[in-house]
Design a protein around this nucleic acid. Sequence first.
DNA 1: CTGTAATCCTGCGAGC
DNA 2: TGCTCGCAGGATTACA
Length: 271
Amino acid sequence: MPELPEVETVARGLRLLLVGRALVGVHRSRKALRQTWTRSWEPMLVGRRVQEILRRGKWLLVGLDSGGFLMVHLGMTGQFTVVAPGVAAENHTHLVFPLDNAHELRFRDARRFGSVTYFSDRPTWEAFLAARLGPEPWDMPAEEWQAALKETKRPVKALLMDQKVVAGVGNIYADEACFAARIDPRRAGNRLKPVEADRLLQSLRAVLTRAIESGGSSIRDYVNGSGEPGGFQKEFAVYGRPGEPCPNCERKIKNVRIAGRSTHYCPRCQK
DNA sequence: CTGTAATCCTGCGAGC
DNA sequence: TGCTCGCAGGATTACA
């Protein structure tokens, strides 16, 4: 569920709530996450102070004063929040880290597509992510983006969502970026002109920036580090609005399936 | 090699 | 009102 803007919003919130705090314990549920929690990690965490919060693509990193890191992925329904003392744990809470200020850091995930993993040092997680992620959208050189499009017949929607091509984009923002760039998401990458490729990358950055400014998008599960929803869902132009009028030309928004994902676009504005 | 489907899991809304 | 079905922000694997 959460894409780059949501994970970035969580990172920013946790920076205020978590940096400087110490983890004073670990509690976990019995249910397995995508990556199984290992008990031998626990002694490495307890007593450690949080030094920094980082984001890379849709991954979140909690840096500890030992040099170790917790790496978190929210999957589709993950929530990573700091909760005030005395608030009862909601269902599907899989990890609880009591803090030195009586608050709790909690990981909650109904569908359990998310994960929380411990890395003993920075180079290890950097290598893990480097093998899976392309550049951040703002670090993507225009030439590299053009080249990535040119070498494949895959639809641009699939390219946008491929984490190895560009990191952090998921189903919502791929659709919104295509709309903003007036590009049909079904078009093959190698059919895009360089100008169009540039426009798509610029539009992607603009959409992501606006979404971050709105605190991300909450459809049903997403909340920030304080447990509050985002507001960008009110600004969707096409995502989740099949049959509704295009905000630009009033034409009915279409819904098709691309690379297995529900895709929304305006048949008149997007060519 | 390239690209698309199936899979993991729970919850919810649409439709009957 | 109650039930079933299909679908949901993701990443990985297994197959065509």
